[in-house]
Amino acid sequence: MALIILAHPNFKNSAANKTIIEELKNSRLQIEIRNIHELYPDYKIDIKAEQDALLRHKTVIFQYPVYWYNMPAILKQWFDLVFEYQFAYGSKGDKLKDKNFIPSFTVGAPEDEYNTLGNHHFRVYEFCKNLEQTAYYAQMKYIDPIYFHGTSLEAGYTTDDVKNKAIDQAERLLKRLSELEEML
């Protein structure tokens, strides 16, 4: 069973992330979804509840849209509080050891803008180094991120384009989860 930490500040109006979550819910795999914006609209995160959810699962997926080259603020707050000393790190902080850590996100801009010559100057994976280090520091197994570009309707993508890409991403996630399950 996998845990999905969903961090989208406007989930009800999302085409991409909403479609991914719907596809995952409709799959045969058992998943627990924690929509942290819905659970904690005031950002007062129940640390114990979140840590208990992490302890119940072997694989944790972090699902979110990229905002200004990073995760949404509530997900950063979640990490700051939940991955605390003696839980996620420290001399007794091995509670997440060997759990799978999978970033899954959506990017508004087209892929060709994420390179040394594009508007964003870096490739997307370069913005994931903080996630990778967080996983390593918590002794988790970092799994390469799953993501897609082109979710911004303002940039000319249609809702159908975005939903089709989101379905593809959900299928890639499900395949990865099935592979990880087989390894157990």
Rank of each mutant, 00 (worst) to 15 (best):
E84N: 15
A49T: 08
R28P: 01
A2R: 01
S91D: 14
I4C: 02
I5E: 00
F11M: 04
V107Y: 00
Y136M: 09
K175R: 09
A135S: 13
G118P: 04
W78T: 07
A16H: 04
L39T: 04
K44V: 03
E182Q: 13
I74P: 00
E38R: 08
T59W: 00
V107R: 01
N35P: 03
A73M: 09
A166P: 02
Q30N: 13
A49G: 03
W68F: 15
K25C: 08
I5T: 02
I31V: 11
R34E: 05
R56N: 15
F87H: 06
F62R: 00
L39G: 04
C128R: 02
L117M: 11
K76V: 12
K99Q: 14
K141V: 10
Y114F: 15
P103E: 03
E181D: 14
K76N: 13
D98A: 11
L184V: 10
T158P: 14
F79Y: 12
M140L: 09
G118Q: 02
L29M: 05
V124W: 01
S27V: 06
D161P: 08
Y40N: 11
G118K: 06
P9N: 09
T116Q: 11
K165F: 06
N130K: 09
C128Y: 08
K141R: 14
A53L: 13
P110S: 11
H149C: 09
I33G: 02
F105A: 05
K129V: 11
E23C: 14
W68N: 11
I61M: 13
L54M: 10
M140V: 10
K92L: 15
Y89V: 02
F79P: 00
I143V: 15
S178K: 15
Y136S: 10
G150W: 09
A49S: 12
N10V: 12
D94C: 07
E84C: 14
I61Y: 09
V60H: 00
P110A: 07
S27Y: 06
G108E: 06
T158R: 12
F101V: 04
M140I: 10
A166K: 06
E113S: 08
I146R: 12
G150F: 06
V82F: 05
Y40P: 07
H149V: 10
L153Q: 13
E23M: 12
A2D: 03
Q30R: 11
F11E: 07
D46A: 10
N35V: 11
I74A: 05
M183D: 06
L6K: 07
R34M: 08
A109P: 11
Y85T: 11
H57D: 04
L39N: 09
S27K: 05
H149T: 08
A170G: 04
Q63A: 14
